[in-house]
């Protein structure tokens, strides 16, 4: 099976996924959905790192993706703990209500 996909296709795919995530961050008010869109953006970058790693036949890119996954897991754990604490205090996770960081 010969892999004949130009790297530009991967760049375009990652760009599109990243921008969908960015639009989601701007267009939604539910803090959890915003969080999920950030995960989508992280994954777009990961995909491009793996594509370039395969292009240059260099394992460092894939190791970086591995570390990004570890950091993303830590970020999600802390972020969701903060969100659930906010929900317990003000019974909402609408980011427009949280914009002043007080209630």
């Amino acid at each position: 099976m010969i892999n004949t996909i130009p790297i530009n296709y991967y760049i375009m795919l990652s760009t599109i996924l990243f921008i969908i995530g960015a639009v989601g961050v701007m267009a939604r008010r539910n803090a959890i959905i915003v969080f999920m869109c950030i995960e989508l953006m992280l994954n777009a970058v990961n995909l491009l790192l793996v594509a370039f790693s395969t292009l240059h036949n260099d394992a460092n890119g894939q190791v970086f993706v591995f570390f990004i996954m570890a950091v993303a897991a830590a970020e999600v754990a802390v972020g969701l703990a903060i969100l659930s604490m906010i929900y317990r205090n003000i019974k909402s996770i609408d980011i427009d209500l949280l914009s002043k960081l007080k209630h």
Binding site: N3, P6, I11, M12, T15, I19, M26, T54, L55, D58
Partner: peptide, 28 residues
Amino acid sequence: GGVLLVVLVGSLKGAEQLQLHQAGASQI
């Protein structure tokens, strides 16, 4: 989002056309 897409696609369009290695050759 649309403007960002146009800017990024426009700036990346001139990138070099490189083909990925053969799948069999890349065992990393």
